[in-house]
């Protein structure tokens, strides 16, 4: 369906960003472990008043179809992110010798 409904009179056209949540519930990042033996991985986020409620909501929102057997919730503000600029990760691209495929092994030697 088109979710870009045509613009009509009365629609807000100014930038809606910059407002804060009034009820002040913090944002939580949700991590789900799909089954034993696998890592928890990021599933999404949600608002909740505290960790207990966040876990409950995460269960309802992200594991309605047995997608997981365990959830973690982490306050979004507790996550510190890397600076994703080129300088941070690019040096690794010119170090192919760190990968096994850099080395040619004679066929007679077999699997290594």
């Amino acid at each position: 369906m088109t979710y870009e409904v045509p613009e009509i009179p009365g629609e807000q056209t100014e930038d809606p960003t910059g407002h804060h949540d009034e009820h002040g519930w913090p944002l939580w990042e949700v991590f789900v472990r799909p089954k034993r033996g696998l890592n928890h991985s990021h599933a999404g986020s949600l608002h909740a008043p505290d960790a207990e409620a966040a876990v409950q909501n995460a269960r309802d929102a992200y594991t309605r179809r047995a997608e997981g057997i365990s959830v973690w919730v982490v306050p979004s503000t507790a996550i510190h992110a890397s600076d994703d600029s080129e300088a941070m990760f690019e040096p690794f691209e010119d170090r192919p010798y760190r990968h096994p495929t850099f080395y040619d092994i004679p066929e007679e030697v077999g699997q290594m």
Binding site: T17, H20, H47
Partner: peptide, 9 residues
């Protein structure tokens, strides 16, 4: 929300 708009807004 990842684009900087709040849920309440």
């Amino acid at each position: 929300e990842t684009l900087g708009v709040s849920r309440d807004e």
